[in-house]
Design a protein around this nucleic acid. Structure first.
Lengths: 221, 221
DNA sequence: CCTACCGATCGGTAGG
DNA sequence: CCTACCGATCGGTAGG
């Protein structure tokens, strides 16, 4: 599982697999088609929110990013906050699906944890528009009503993590409390968006995943 | 070191010690006296920035928190951003001093790491006005000129962490890369501000420190 | 999806 | 430290 060939193939497999999942979610109307007007707006919004923050991103920035006038935005969304909510809802839906697929492909709990870490790092730092970092850092910009709505989806997502961490605890592989570990990982992984620059060389995303797993005291199996 | 008495005394010792450090920093004009107009404003600003974010905090919020009119703020600070910079500078100065003291009191590298984790958790979640969380989460709200200025102080602070982590790596106690571990810890520890509520019971700050150390695979000594 | 514009609020200023 | 106010910019609207 750690030979030279799998290192080359894994990212490719993951990409193909992720595209299949995306297509089926679009078909079920759970996420927007990236080629639609709505989809393109959400992708640009996610990028802007991630890079400069929700509060510092104006409706004029959002409109300019997709080449329309600011007033035209409100044909698609009633408020700016609704755009933030949509970004979060679609991000979490896609990621939950991607992670469930990655989990079912893994045999051991250690591999499952590695898959979760890897997928979340990809979602936070990836160029594909799924900005998990927005979900984490802009949470308090969401109205309470929207928070409650997104929280239901988040609970499902978090349950994936807790199941694996609890299993590792039962195995004796994990010493610390699974709940605390998950919260620490949420902070640690999202924080990578501020410093991790894979395009500058150095640590690959796979190498970073290894480091996270090593930090937890779990060998790579 | 882990008897019933030390559990009771440690927090008190830490408080007394921290106050001594604060007094000497005030004497050197490195941080503002908490009882001065400037000091009270910075303390309220830190709390507001931490709780609702810099962008969402208006100059009118800041003025109201100390009972003056918004225009009067600009007698003390030329711009709102200057207030943010002052909060960050004074926070990092105080914390560097507190940490250096904690380090010199510790014998082993494991104890030093524990002291660093404990001090940072206190600075992030404490009620004493030293809001490390602001330094982390509002970094991008700082102008580039101010960032460069604060960065010099941060480098000293980060060096404290890297020295201890590198020593633990050399001892064989740490498996992962010290640099990566420190960045992960930055995210993990600051993220506690969003979920950790010691006043609600449950995990104590000491217990949380234990969990973090346990998560890193380092026993409590 | 555009043009034209709104009321509110923002950070900051002038003069005392 | 206050009163009174500013220009700019914000999210959002009306009518086409």
């Amino acid at each position: 599982m750690s030979g030279r060939i799998s290192i080359l193939l894994e990212p490719l497999d993951a990409l193909v697999n992720q595209d299949k999942i995306l297509q089926s979610l679009i078909a079920e109307n759970l996420v927007s088609d990236p080629d639609s007007a709505r989809g393109r707006l959400l992708r640009e919004a996610a990028r802007l929110f991630r890079d400069k923050g929700y509060e510092r991103t104006t409706v004029r920035d959002l409109a300019a990013a997709v080449g329309i006038q600011s007033g035209s935005l409100f044909h698609h969304f009633r408020t700016k906050e609704e755009i933030l909510k949509a970004v979060m809802v679609e991000t979490i839906r896609l990621n939950t699906a991607v992670m469930q697929a990655a989990m079912s492909a893994a045999d051991s709990n250690r591999e499952k944890l590695r898959a979760l870490v890897s997928a979340e790092l990809e979602s936070i730092n990836g160029q594909t528009g799924e900005a998990m970092a927005v979900l984490v850092f802009e949470w308090r910009s969401l109205s309470e009503a929207s928070q409650a709505e997104v929280l239901k989806l988040r609970d499902i997502y978090e349950a994936l993590w807790l199941d694996v961490l609890n299993a590792l605890k039962d195995e004796g592989a994990l010493v610390a409390d699974p709940f605390v570990v998950r919260r620490m990982l949420t902070g640690a992984l999202s924080w990578t968006v501020t410093w991790y620059r894979p395009e500058r060389g150095g640590l690959t995303q796979d190498g970073l995943t290894d480091q996270v797993v090593a930090m937890l005291g779990l060998s790579q199996s």
